[in-house]
Design a protein around this nucleic acid. Structure first.
Lengths: 360, 360
DNA sequence: TTGAAAGCGCTACCAA
DNA sequence: TTGGTAGCGCTTTCAA
């Protein structure tokens, strides 16, 4: 207790000695891997209790070659989307007897690589990889090639052959578009997240493709990109609204951005949804709590998390197979979207009002 | 690659053989723990590179008796307060070469105990313990007695002699009270978090003690307790406002509860802050983004996290000492608090208006 | 039903 | 400047 170097806890050897049996025996009464005499069993257990012995999991891991640990690489714990995802994963993990080793990368590619290396060196049995950058990651590629247990979650890695779980982002983008269209919005803007992220492309493209088909393609200069953050959304929103005051609605690639857009709109004296509709993506818990509750495209976060863990376990104790699971999104209508002012005005003036009917 | 049992990665032995040197040498060129010949150094490094050798951290840990891992016990990752705390801790940890092993307890005492045991068995070098329940925890007590490196964070454990980092909760409660008082609120309610939590007692008592001193003690039936959640706040808020429609302000023991109270107020047709002022605690990131931006007592989350890790490291490589660090809170005024209607009405009617002047 | 002993992959002491 | 080797604390054959 005095020296700082040696916690010197009680070992299996101590137990064996105190119980007057062999180490082997202690090991087996504890693991139940082979029958033991009733008598010795009780003697050993008593000693274990008395000495408060707990097997050293490090030594166990070295001997058995498994650590009952899974590595988690995540880009941004401050985005509430990820804690929700982590929560789901952790529930599955605990249930399966696994623990999570956390690696926060701040969306930095260099950190992603380092973390991955470190996790492997620590002999985690698998990794759930959530990226925050579009940069290629050689370490990740190597692991995938070696069929190291790995599942990519949320953000797809282009070109990587590995199991993954994603939301139907393109579909989500389409849902967003259809919703705004039906409300009567014709002048819409889009604020995507970090350029190059597959999820961003999909959401944005799904949105644009729908508007194009409906006959009102979104002009290129009405689509901008920014970071997945409130601040990013605020900046980008301000710029977009300043350059295009004619916009009546904005689709944001995630909720954080949407929050920022709402703030920007207010600064510019535009009420939401009165003068501007805002639509988000994720359906983070707080989405229901912000000023006008946010209309958003919900990702099935819980299912994504548990499915990811399930896939990982499949690999850990079984065959590797690059399954690609896509989970459906759905639109959650709340208070941040409404028909554009013009349409409402017309409606109020009376009469049926198919918004900008094709022939008009 | 076929068999599921043996990842059989390359070991130090392989490197030694391939480089034509001893295992010892390989170990030392990698650790730098002793000088090595320029030539052999390069040879070894080349082989390491070529074989893509990475030392097995499990084996290292067993040999060196350190894991470069810290355990984190946290009650509720869905409360944004904790991700923010985790973020701060993780920054310090990564900087010091440590990794975080995550244990989510869902505020369950049984899980807290299990996690603690498991973390110790996994030989983490220390534990940062954030509790979510008021239940006593024998395992924790044992660890503290044994001077196992441990720091209690955020939520104090009564009677436990161990290092800890906390916000000045009582002070925070006082700040909240003074603010509402100065705005002119005389009929106030309090919604605490889980009964028995020290932080809750401190915040509530700080608040009440101030109102008492100012001559308007808060009647007991205007103080209620609930879970640290939006839902809890909503339920409790609804009940309180229904029973006491005369209240003009509510102090909530954390931001989540405050959010819930705001929702409850709306349901009851009361605007915030027009007809009801709401004050929170924590200053979670989203506090600035909700409907009326939340006036709240800010905890110095980042500093709490980094200080906790610093204290832990102090114990890991040094002397145990039950330091108790308390960090100051401060009031952040935003939009959810305002003078009560009566006062505003009177003010508008003209004339100086010491709210409910003692002689009135 | 029990034990001896050979690892698991490293570190670090002791020699050379 | 280098190597042999005894652990670290456990699991698991193989024998008894």
């Amino acid at each position: 207790m005095q020296n700082g170097l040696e916690p010197a806890s009680v070992t299996i050897r101590d137990v064996a000695r105190a119980a007057g049996v062999s180490i082997t025996t202690v090991s087996h009464v504890l693991s139940g891997h082979r029958p033991t005499g009733e008598l010795t069993r009780h003697r050993v257990l008593a000693v274990v209790e008395q000495l408060n012995y707990r097997p050293n999991r490090v030594a166990q891991s070295l001997a058995t070659r498994h650590t009952r640990t899974v590595g988690l690489i995540l880009p941004d714990i401050l985005n509430p989307f990820f804690p929700q995802l982590v929560h789901a994963i952790e529930r599955s993990a605990i249930h399966a007897g696994y623990r999570l080793l956390l690696c926060h990368t701040d969306s930095l590619e260099s950190l992603e690589r380092e973390c991955l290396e470190d996790l492997v060196a620590r002999r985690v049995e698998g990794v759930i990889y959530m990226r925050g950058t579009a940069a290629p990651n050689p370490v990740l590629e190597r692991l995938a090639e070696e069929h190291f247990p790995l599942v990519v979650l949320d953000e797809e890695v282009p070109g990587l052959v590995a199991p993954g779980v994603y939301a139907m982002n393109r579909l989500g983008g389409r849902m967003a578009a259809r919703h705004l269209w039906q409300l009567g919005h014709r002048d819409v803007g889009v604020i995507g997240g970090p350029r190059g992220l597959v999820s961003v492309c999909d959401r944005v493209q799904g949105f644009q493709e729908t508007y194009r088909r409906l006959g009102a393609p979104v002009p290129e200069e009405r689509t901008v990109f920014t970071g997945f953050s409130v601040h990013g959304g605020q900046e980008a929103g301000r710029g977009l609204l300043l350059r295009h005051p004619e916009l009546t609605a904005v689709f944001a690639a995630n909720d954080l951005i949407a929050f920022g857009v709402i703030q920007a709109a207010r600064e510019l004296g535009r009420s939401v949804p009165g003068s501007l509709s805002v639509l988000g993506f994720d359906d983070v818990t707080t989405a229901a709590m912000v000023d006008p509750p946010l209309t958003t495209v919900r990702q099935p976060i819980r299912r994504m998390g548990s499915e990811a863990f399930r896939l990982l376990m499949g690999q850990v104790r079984g065959t590797w197979e690059p399954v690609r699971r896509q989970l459906p999104t759905r639109l959650v209508e709340r208070g941040s979207t409404a028909p554009p002012e013009r349409v409402r005005a017309v409606s109020a003036a009376g009469g049926a009002t198919p918004p900008r009917s094709p022939g008009a």
